Computed example of a mutant assay.
Amino acid sequence: MQSLNGKVAIITGAGSGIGQRIAHLLAERGAKVVVAASRRESAAGTEASIRAAGGEVVSVFGDLADASVPQAIVDAAVAAFGKVDILVNNAAVTDAATLVKDANIADMDGATWERVLKVNIIAPALLCKAAIPHMIAADGGSIVMIASGRGLQGDLGLPAYGASKAALINLALNVATQYGKQGIRANSLVVGMVMTPSVAAATEPEMLELFMGHHLTPYVATPDDIAEPVAFLASDAARFITGATLAVDGGMTSHAAPFADVMRISAGAGMIKQD
């Protein structure tokens, strides 16, 4: 458990799910937290729960598709706490209305691409633009991008989401390269299935079993499994780690494509014992 005492952290998409847990954990480790979310009520809800637990926190809300919002988030952090040390670019388009259109490339319209790319990659880039000068003034900082296995693989759906996550990984590499000598670190987490309450509610048992078959771990992730690596990368314990792309996906992106099928066939033939 690494201390984040004295540090100021911005977490986007912190109104629920993974972002909410990251915000809570960083506050528990001693950081002063800026909760950023798309809706006032979700931002305020996370702010209230962190404050009730004894954390120092402010919240700000706004649609990241609006290019003025990233600067407003950083301005809120500096106004409240005087500096920025940590930026966690976690927010992404997850609303069903957009995701259902992010499907077959030949059928997708420009508005869908624009919406996903504005929130998932342009906003993180603008947050970096706004935060980096303050980090340099504070003698350094850590930026963590919450990417996805979809940024490393092709799939039957979500091409805009996947392209944006691939771009997010590359953004981290460029930030690490351009600003490393000024004390700025930037790293990405490649995240797989995470059982947030909304994911758990929407995932049928058959689909969960399918995903479990492709994990190398005997379980899928909870938000804590993502928040802990973020807290580490944000801390001074990770001071020599930058430009890294860390898979936090239960091994989903590490193995050959037919892994689950081979396991099933081998188990059926009595070659591999499965508990």
Rank of each mutant, 00 (worst) to 15 (best):
K83E: 10
V78Q: 04
V191F: 04
L126S: 07
V248Q: 07
T98V: 03
S148A: 01
A244V: 03
M108G: 06
D155I: 11
P229D: 05
T196R: 02
A92E: 14
D275Q: 12
G270H: 03
Y161W: 02
A163Y: 03
S148L: 02
A163M: 06
V191K: 08
L4R: 09
D224R: 06
V116G: 07
A44I: 10
V74P: 09
A167F: 06
G162K: 02
Q71C: 11
M252R: 12
P159C: 00
V199E: 10
L156P: 09
K165H: 00
I265R: 15
A186T: 09
G6T: 10
S16D: 14
R264G: 08
A172M: 06
A138F: 06
R39T: 13
V35Y: 07
E56D: 12
A160V: 01
S68D: 12
A202Y: 07
A186K: 01
R40L: 12
S235A: 01
D66L: 10
G30S: 05
L158Y: 15
H215F: 12
E47V: 11
D102V: 02
S266K: 09
A48P: 00
I132N: 05
A96Y: 09
G54S: 03
A138Q: 05
L171G: 02
A137P: 01
P124G: 03
I86R: 11
V230S: 04
L26M: 05
P70A: 09
